[in-house]
Design a protein around this nucleic acid. Sequence first.
DNA 1: CTCGACTCCACCCAGAGGGGTGAGGCACGG
DNA 2: CCGTGCCTCACCCCTCTGGGTGGAGTCGAG
Lengths: 218, 218
Amino acid sequence: MPIRVALVNDYEVVVHGIASMLRSHTHRVEVVELNASSHVAEPVDIALFDTFTQSRDDGTGVVRLLENPYVDKVCVYTWSTDRSLRESALRLGIAGYLSKRLSASDLVSALEQVHKGEVVVSDEPARLPLIGGDWPGREEGLTAREAEVLCLITQGLTNAQIVERTSLSINSIKSYIRSCYRKIGVDSRSRAVLWGVEHGMQLDRVRVSEPDIPGSRD
Amino acid sequence: MPIRVALVNDYEVVVHGIASMLRSHTHRVEVVELNASSHVAEPVDIALFDTFTQSRDDGTGVVRLLENPYVDKVCVYTWSTDRSLRESALRLGIAGYLSKRLSASDLVSALEQVHKGEVVVSDEPARLPLIGGDWPGREEGLTAREAEVLCLITQGLTNAQIVERTSLSINSIKSYIRSCYRKIGVDSRSRAVLWGVEHGMQLDRVRVSEPDIPGSRD
DNA sequence: CTCGACTCCACCCAGAGGGGTGAGGCACGG
DNA sequence: CCGTGCCTCACCCCTCTGGGTGGAGTCGAG
């Protein structure tokens, strides 16, 4: 009886990346793909929330999932080793804080433990390569962080808003912007937005049908 | 024998606006719609070049048309009453400088005169309403100038570049930006670009087939 | 006549953004 | 060990952007 897992993130590439990773474990997990603005409208055992562009302090995305009666358990799936982010997420009531550095089978094992009622924190230090991830712009040579920042720019956020969203310092954001612009060959925000639009960095809004919420398809 | 007229501008809405205006004169003019980055690839009697977002001093768009062996005559179609713009255009060798304030039948008459070999400058003062025009964003309440500036923003141009493109002062550009942002409800350039993208203000690139230039369809 | 809309422009000011430099830590490969 | 790449951050400096204020002229409608 496979665990039913909803993969939650606003970028199709991101959830596709996780889904393909779990492909060889279909006897243990059954995967549903959702974006972060969707409501889970059918029962799932676990919602696996990928933090790409969503790792804000207040855990907004996570809170919505925690409050969803269709969702039994919520896990955060992240590359962040930030202890305070982890503690806040756990305080919110998540059942798992899972590293993107877990191998596929370790991830599935962790999900199985979560399903059994344990609270799982994967303690992988940054010594393992980033396995669990794909992101828009990866093929164009952007690092995960650069891509994340560019996605947020493409959403129209200011640097200050990106600071809030990512819990990084303004100086880090500017560094990523600089390196990112160099890689994609733009020198202004407008051009960056246009690049992002052309390269699939807008929020993916059309993914799953939501028969009971008419306005959320906009 | 109708005069064959190519309507030239980068925005589909703009050339559609002219085409619909000329609809009741099909016995006198035969209309082809092109965008400004297309090459005229079949013989036309007159290329009618609409200056929306294209009214730069150096007449780049016009020059290309003047050099095209398929184009017999080139006319500029504009709302500008700027005398120096007009003089430069005439010096480039255009056969007509036609106001968007002309009625449809007056426009057709002017085109007929041009076809007969005359150089036509329509001298309409700004006392007549703007007839010959449609533009992206018009339905959303943007004035022609506001829309023009926003289209250029949506192309990723800086204010300085927009100054060059429109031959207006930086202060006028800023005024239009302010009023435009107020109308569309944005407060940053990124948001304005996104608004423009969502409202059809990107350059229209897919219009006519160009069988002999493989790369220009991108 | 007044008023509002549109076009065009000036000037002031603050902050948002982007270029640069440098640094520390970690991992990995040669 | 060193170099490279990635992440994270600091500081400096300058330009670009966008908010404000005001003004002039033209036109059309009331």
